[in-house]
Amino acid sequence: MADQKKSSFISVFLNGLITENPTFTLMLGMCPTLGVTTAAMNGVSMGLATTFVLVCSNLFISLLRNIIPDKVRIPAYIVVIASFVTMIDLFMQAFLPELRAVLGTYIQLIVVNCIIFARAESFAAKNPPLLSIADGLGMGLGFTCSITLLSMVRELFGSGSIFGLRIMPEGYLPMAIMNQVPGGFITLGLMMILVNVIKKYASARKEEKLA
């Protein structure tokens, strides 16, 4: 029984991290994905802040899932999510004011990040607390990984560095458009094509093995 629980915990976690990756498969939470990913550090911090809110809100909504009446569930979810967002916002203002200034309104906008809403509605409202935490962790880290990857690519071409470390040779002239809106859209589009191609290749390999 305990083993079964553990394995389902892991499978739910992996589902969020890879199979149903919120960015590349579910296409949720696009605004922060594109808005803050000009430097790798911003990507990581935004991802972790979102993960925190996601895990907490999943846990609470899952605990309250039998108490909240169906009719007012959306306002109820919003209040739960908004409370955690306010907590992390105040925390960052107190301890990480510089980072908070860079991420700006996007921190407050975690409230309307559709990943959190979608997971509350489609997972936490129907599943026990432990699994909901696993789902929150998986989805949150999946989101973190993909936006970190995106921001690394953008920082590499847009500033010639990754996490502030210079990668490109001295003579490299940064491609400024990567730090701007068009660069974000186009990089994400190209990465999505790449992910789809890899997925197709992987599933073809799997079928080959089965056959």
């Binding site: 458009i177 068009p182 660069g183 859209f185 186009i186 589009g189 190209l190 999505m192 789809n196």
Partner: peptide, 18 residues
């Protein structure tokens, strides 16, 4: 085929933003 749907829409949006 691999451009249809979201990847295509993202690249279109990028070009529009230019």
């Amino acid at each position: 085929k691999w451009m249809q749907g979201f990847p295509g829409a993202l690249i279109m949006s990028g070009l529009m933003a230019i």
